[in-house]
Computed example of a mutant assay.
Amino acid sequence: MKLLRDNWDSTDPTPLPSDLGDGFVAYAGPDSLETRPYFSVARFRCGKEKPWISIDLETVAQGRDPVKDITDLLRVARTRYGRLHDCTPKPL
């Protein structure tokens, strides 16, 4: 996670809410060489495992809050992970 933060530090990443675990949402900007400048990663605990989920987007509809939308998507993905792997997702 430190390496990810170091690589995305110049984008002023937004930390995730603590209930999602460890992670952030970042925007690399319109001049980014990345094809998907909206990037997020979350690491959490599920049973004995410590999985991580990454979501990146190319665009966000005008008027939408990308941080909120991506955070909501991470929440859904984490919950679904718990159902698929028969564990209860918790923060690290």
Results as ranks from 00 to 15, higher is better:
residue 46 C to Y: 06
residue 22 D to Q: 13
residue 40 S to E: 07
residue 47 G to E: 10
residue 41 V to T: 05
residue 1 M to F: 10
residue 12 D to W: 07
residue 20 L to D: 10
residue 35 T to A: 06
residue 21 G to I: 03
residue 54 S to A: 14
residue 78 R to P: 00
residue 73 L to V: 03
residue 68 K to E: 14
residue 36 R to P: 00
residue 41 V to K: 05
residue 2 K to R: 09
residue 34 E to I: 06
residue 56 D to Q: 09
residue 66 P to S: 15
residue 33 L to G: 14
residue 74 L to M: 12
residue 44 F to T: 02
residue 2 K to Q: 10
residue 58 E to C: 02
residue 56 D to I: 00
residue 12 D to I: 04
residue 76 V to T: 11
residue 33 L to Q: 12
residue 56 D to L: 01
residue 89 P to N: 05
residue 25 V to N: 07
residue 89 P to A: 01
residue 24 F to N: 02
residue 83 R to I: 05
residue 77 A to T: 04
residue 14 T to V: 15
residue 2 K to D: 11
residue 68 K to M: 11
residue 74 L to T: 06
residue 61 A to I: 05
residue 78 R to C: 00
residue 67 V to D: 14
residue 63 G to L: 10
residue 1 M to T: 09
residue 50 K to Q: 07
residue 74 L to K: 05
residue 80 R to Y: 03
residue 13 P to C: 11
residue 12 D to F: 11
residue 73 L to G: 11
residue 86 D to M: 03
residue 45 R to G: 03
residue 53 I to K: 08
residue 78 R to A: 02
residue 72 D to R: 15
residue 17 P to Q: 11
residue 42 A to F: 00
residue 53 I to V: 14
residue 30 P to T: 07
residue 70 I to L: 15
residue 29 G to H: 08
residue 77 A to P: 01
residue 42 A to W: 02
residue 44 F to I: 05
residue 69 D to C: 02
residue 43 R to V: 02
residue 17 P to E: 07
residue 26 A to Y: 05
residue 87 C to N: 03
residue 81 Y to D: 06
residue 45 R to C: 00
residue 69 D to V: 13
residue 5 R to G: 08
residue 79 T to F: 02
residue 86 D to G: 05
residue 56 D to M: 04
residue 65 D to E: 13
residue 34 E to H: 06
residue 23 G to K: 08
residue 13 P to N: 10
residue 13 P to T: 09
residue 48 K to M: 05
residue 7 N to M: 15
residue 43 R to M: 03
residue 57 L to N: 04
residue 16 L to T: 07
residue 90 K to N: 01
residue 1 M to E: 11
residue 63 G to T: 08
residue 58 E to D: 05
residue 68 K to V: 14
residue 82 G to S: 07
residue 41 V to M: 07
residue 62 Q to T: 10
residue 46 C to F: 09
residue 31 D to L: 07
residue 41 V to Y: 03
residue 64 R to W: 13
residue 14 T to M: 10
residue 31 D to K: 08
residue 72 D to K: 15
residue 27 Y to R: 11
residue 73 L to A: 15
residue 53 I to N: 10
residue 73 L to K: 14
residue 41 V to P: 01
residue 72 D to T: 14
residue 69 D to K: 02
residue 25 V to C: 13
residue 70 I to E: 03
residue 43 R to I: 00
residue 73 L to M: 15
residue 6 D to T: 12
residue 52 W to E: 15
residue 84 L to W: 07
residue 38 Y to I: 03
residue 16 L to P: 02
residue 80 R to K: 13
residue 9 D to P: 00
residue 30 P to I: 06
residue 72 D to W: 07
residue 52 W to I: 02
residue 19 D to G: 01
residue 40 S to Q: 09
residue 39 F to N: 04
residue 31 D to P: 00
residue 82 G to N: 08
residue 20 L to V: 14
residue 9 D to W: 09
residue 25 V to E: 03
residue 23 G to P: 03
residue 48 K to A: 13
residue 56 D to A: 02
residue 39 F to G: 01
residue 40 S to L: 07
residue 49 E to Y: 12
residue 83 R to W: 04
residue 8 W to Y: 15
residue 58 E to W: 01
residue 85 H to A: 00
residue 70 I to A: 10
residue 1 M to Y: 10
residue 84 L to E: 15
residue 76 V to P: 02
